[in-house]
Amino acid sequence: MASSLDTVFSALADPTRRAILTMLLEDDMAVSDVADPFEMSLAAISKHLMILTKAGLISQEKRGRVKWCKLEPDALRAASVWMQGFGQFEPIHLDAFERFLEVELTDTPPAGDTA
């Protein structure tokens, strides 16, 4: 599973690939339509699409002369489950932590404390 997570996160690391995934949320698209909004060659877009395909994030199929791309949302499930594991921790309240450290690290007791 770690290897597939590495592949998914590596594919998601590039902003162009994330933009492609966002575009494919709407509907399946021809490769040429995927390439239109980007200022790069069709060959460069094809490399991005191949990385997304290898990660299982999209699938590609040929329909006549046109190659179509389709989002595979289930491929993000393992990554989502992994990330949700971090949601169980409560965020640290930095102000309270700072006050705690201030009290612990000073020699004088805090105001109102007569110990």
Score class of each variant (00 low, 15 high):
6 D>L: 14
7 T>F: 06
8 V>H: 08
9 F>E: 15
10 S>C: 12
10 S>Q: 14
11 A>H: 07
12 L>S: 06
12 L>F: 01
12 L>T: 05
14 D>R: 03
14 D>H: 09
14 D>G: 08
14 D>V: 01
15 P>H: 12
16 T>K: 02
16 T>N: 08
17 R>W: 02
19 A>W: 03
20 I>D: 03
22 T>V: 06
23 M>A: 11
23 M>F: 02
23 M>D: 09
23 M>L: 12
27 D>I: 00
28 D>I: 01
29 M>N: 10
29 M>W: 05
32 S>I: 00
35 A>G: 06
36 D>C: 04
36 D>P: 03
37 P>R: 05
38 F>K: 04
40 M>W: 00
41 S>E: 15
43 A>R: 15
44 A>P: 09
45 I>M: 14
45 I>L: 12
46 S>Q: 15
46 S>F: 07
47 K>I: 02
52 L>D: 08
53 T>G: 07
54 K>N: 13
55 A>Q: 03
57 L>N: 13
58 I>K: 09
58 I>V: 11
59 S>G: 11
59 S>N: 09
60 Q>N: 11
61 E>H: 02
63 R>H: 08
65 R>T: 13
65 R>Q: 13
66 V>M: 01
68 W>E: 04
71 L>V: 00
71 L>N: 08
73 P>S: 14
73 P>H: 09
74 D>R: 15
74 D>I: 15
74 D>C: 13
76 L>T: 12
77 R>T: 15
78 A>M: 01
79 A>R: 04
82 W>S: 14
82 W>L: 10
85 G>A: 10
87 G>V: 08
88 Q>R: 08
88 Q>W: 03
90 E>S: 10
90 E>V: 06
93 H>W: 04
93 H>S: 11
94 L>N: 05
99 R>V: 00
99 R>Q: 07
101 L>V: 03
101 L>W: 05
102 E>K: 01
103 V>Y: 00
103 V>R: 02
103 V>E: 06
104 E>G: 02
104 E>A: 09
106 T>Q: 08
108 T>V: 06
108 T>K: 10
109 P>C: 05
109 P>F: 09
109 P>G: 09
110 P>N: 05
112 G>Y: 00
112 G>R: 01
113 D>K: 05
113 D>A: 10
113 D>M: 01
114 T>N: 09
114 T>G: 03
115 A>W: 08
